[in-house]
Write a protein that binds this DNA or RNA. Structure first.
Lengths: 189, 189
DNA sequence: TCGAAAAAAGGACATTTGTCCCGCTTGAAA
DNA sequence: TTTCAAGCGGGACAAATGTCCTTTTTTCGA
């Protein structure tokens, strides 16, 4: 449930060596905003280190977290394909390092480097593929079952992610999350 | 909320003329299964006509509809990139016509035709982009508000889509959907 | 054209979740 | 060190949703 892309991470590291002059690296502190909903950025980002959350703030004050991402995942690539502001905000959950590939270079790589092109295709396909079972499971099973599933996928989630983020990921209020956690505690250990 | 892809539809029509010998066209009746969760198909499909639903059946008997799709939308493209069974089932909601592009041809087009490659990249980016606001809205607002939104996006949805499908799209029981529809009827006209 | 089967509507009750609180803990900034 | 904001946990009640069931309407094949 914290998504990663080892192949793209590996490719990014070769980029850092070969094309060092054309890319940049930025560091973000915990809770810092990496991208803001509606804003534009002249680059595509790839996470080199750390955990980010990708989320949407609704007009009524609620937030919904799309996914947690770590090494090798792209951010801001959708805006390369369709100009217009970012759909989601992205913020650092732990200290984060981002590799920034300017749109100009991204386009060249996409058009000339078949390997890179395929990595991006697969990365997009992966994001589509992942969302289907996640949302199906989320609406089909109880909150308790969803929490158990997070624990299976990422045992440390309660230690690493703030409660508020977990609630926003599961699409429930913090109160409901606490209640469900208590129920689970009473049932097993 | 019934998704379409005019550019890919246009491209598909030229494919039907130029490469007619290498592609095929299949018709499906209402409710017929086009793809089954877990199964494999040696082609990528593009909808030429009709409306399909793309959904996941969970082990507990519940179904969750990912999206409704019509002209120009792809089905089964995820399985081209990662071998393995289909994540979702696809079924015809109205009579449907599908253009089938064999994986072998799909690969050639992807590698040699920059235009096609870009269309597929944009199509995938579109699917990712679309899901974020949809699920955010769905979990952030009341059922009534979600129904109103469907009406704004597709005024005829109650006439075209079965109630059960609408409920499975919104992630609620048929009972709750009916209740909410009644409330809306009482409020306005 | 009839009859079976599916779809639709909604009543009654149980369960889940949200909202609005309050009090406690913790960590970072003054 | 003190202080204050943010995070955490949970009580009490209200609202939303699910489950189960019955009745009516519609559809479609024999």
């Amino acid at each position: 449930m914290i998504r990663t892309n080892p192949k793209l991470l590996a490719y990014s590291k070769t980029l850092l060596e070969k094309d060092r002059a054309q890319v940049s690296v930025t560091h973000y502190k915990r809770k810092e905003e990496i991208m803001g909903q509606g804003h534009r950025y002249p680059y595509v980002g790839i996470i080199i280190k750390g955990i980010v959350k990708c989320f949407i703030n609704e007009a009524n004050g609620k937030a919904f977290i799309q996914e947690f991402m770590t090494e090798g995942m792209e951010v801001g690539e959708l805006e390369f394909f369709e100009k217009g502001g970012a759909t989601c905000s992205v913020a650092a959950v732990t200290p984060v390092t981002i590799l920034e590939i300017p749109h100009q270079l991204f386009k060249i790589l996409l058009d000339k480097e078949l390997t890179f092109n395929r990595l991006i295709l697969e990365s997009l396909a992966d994001k589509v593929r992942y969302k289907a079972p996640r949302h199906a499971f989320q609406t089909s099973y109880s909150l308790e079952r969803n929490i158990e599933k997070m624990g299976e996928l990422y045992p440390d989630f309660l230690k690493v992610l703030p409660k508020g983020d977990i609630a926003n990921y599961l699409g429930v209020s913090a109160r409901s999350l606490n209640r469900a956690l208590k129920t689970l505690r009473e049932e097993h250990g």
